[in-house]
Amino acid sequence: MKTHTIVLNVNREIHMVTVRSADTLLYVLRSKLGLTGAKPGCLNGDCGACTVNVDGWPMKSCLMLAVEAVGKKITTIEGLKDTPIQQAFVENFAFQCGYCTPGFIMNCHSLIEQHPDADDEKIREWLESNICRCTGYEEIKNAIKSVLNKD
């Protein structure tokens, strides 16, 4: 079993971790760094519950190996503090069980950064990569639109 000691930049902190070649970024974030905000949902890129932000873009951390993340800036839900999108999710009741929420928020946060003027079509294109099973998506739509419109 081949292991590597790598340096990861997560939430503006430098971490040195020893990982297997096959370890996903999701596994290392959760099991080695204790950042359990990113959730496993399918380990297949289908559900988006594990979404984090890598160099400003949303990334499903189950589809990225930890060794691929070296030299990149990784932001997880734990790295967001009092952002408008977090507040908007609370105010709009945009979650129930909360399991998909970190992934949705990281995706929304990246969208707001990349496309502050996103229209409905752009929002749909981005957010259809995540699954929420509790809400009917109406509240999530209200949350993201309230932040985009504010800007």
Partner: peptide
């Protein structure tokens, strides 16, 4: 009324069994 565990849930601090 905002749900009591709302802020844990938007900050990645809500813990589920596998966490």
């Amino acid at each position: 009324v905002i749900r009591k565990e709302a802020f844990d849930k938007v900050n990645g601090r809500a813990l589920y069994t596998n966490d």
